[in-house]
Amino acid sequence: MTPEDVLKGLTGPLSLRRRLFYVAVGLAGLTGSALIALLWATEAALPARTQIAFAVLIVIGIAWAGFGGWAVTRRVPLFARDRVVAAWLGMVAWLLFAAGALAIQRSPGVAVVVVLLGTIGAINVGFARRARATLRQSLPD
């Protein structure tokens, strides 16, 4: 077995596209289920079948979010640069959620949730950038 054979077997975990795909899938699932949950919570007197449909869609979204989270923690690791990209993707997901949430309902409660999630996203970007910078600084010139 040569090093090239080993590397061929590691194509999946080392694929940047695949890692970011799992991040995007997870974020899409999370954003979708959050928006549906918000819609469900703010719509009065929905028919039973609509409520069931919403519940199923939320479960599907959470399942995709769980799968994405599991994939990037257990199957394909996120390296420092990937974490920065993933953190920015998180901010994009937050923007989509904020736009959707404010379109569904403009209330102080929704605004607080949007601001809170945005703050968490921004802190996450900061952590990811700092971790990458720390690693870069530890490299000799």
Binding site: P3, L7, L10, L14, L16, F79, A80, R81, D82, R132, L135, R136
Partner: peptide
């Protein structure tokens, strides 16, 4: 490698 350089891993 930890930064994510594929060539470094190779």
């Amino acid at each position: 490698c930890q930064l994510g350089e594929r060539e470094a891993f190779a």
